[in-house]
């Protein structure tokens, strides 16, 4: 799958990119905030997005995921240190691919992506 990564921490973004490549996926773009994330998505048309909830420049991963879903039909897999029940309920309408709590393990990421590809 062609995957967009939106994560404000460069090291974590690098790690996720590497993990995704190891798992046989293609990282089509990386972004640190919601604006560049949306631009990248419009340019590269990914199959899905891996999104952190709190992003750089004080932007919101949840809103970005909503926009991606509504404009481009791109579904998201959330990776965050703060996933609340309220957030899960909020996002239910845009069919998220999953919610992974940091620190993520390779196995959990793999399982979530298998679910997405199926």
């Amino acid at each position: 799958m062609r995957i967009l990564i939106v994560e404000d921490d460069a090291l974590i973004a690098l790690d996720i990119a590497w993990l995704l490549q190891d798992l046989g996926h293609e990282v089509c773009a990386e972004a640190a905030d919601a604006f560049t994330g949306l631009e990248a998505a419009e340019q590269t048309k990914p199959d899905m997005a891996v999104i952190d909830i709190r992003l750089a420049r004080n932007t919101d991963g949840g809103k970005l995921a909503r926009t991606l879903y509504c404009r481009l039909g791109v579904r998201s897999l959330f990776v965050s240190g703060s996933i609340t029940e309220a957030f899960r309920k909020d996002m239910a309408a845009i069919e998220p691919l999953g919610f992974l709590a940091k620190p993520i393990s390779r196995r959990h990421l793999d399982e979530a992506l298998r679910g997405a590809a199926a």
């Binding site: 921490d9 090291l11 974590i12 993990l19 240190g81 709590a101 620190p103």
Partner: peptide, 14 residues
């Protein structure tokens, strides 16, 4: 805390 743990985990994994 979870972000910091993730950073350490990412570095170790790499």
């Amino acid at each position: 805390v979870k972000n910091s743990l993730q950073q350490i985990a990412s570095v170790v994994r790499m």
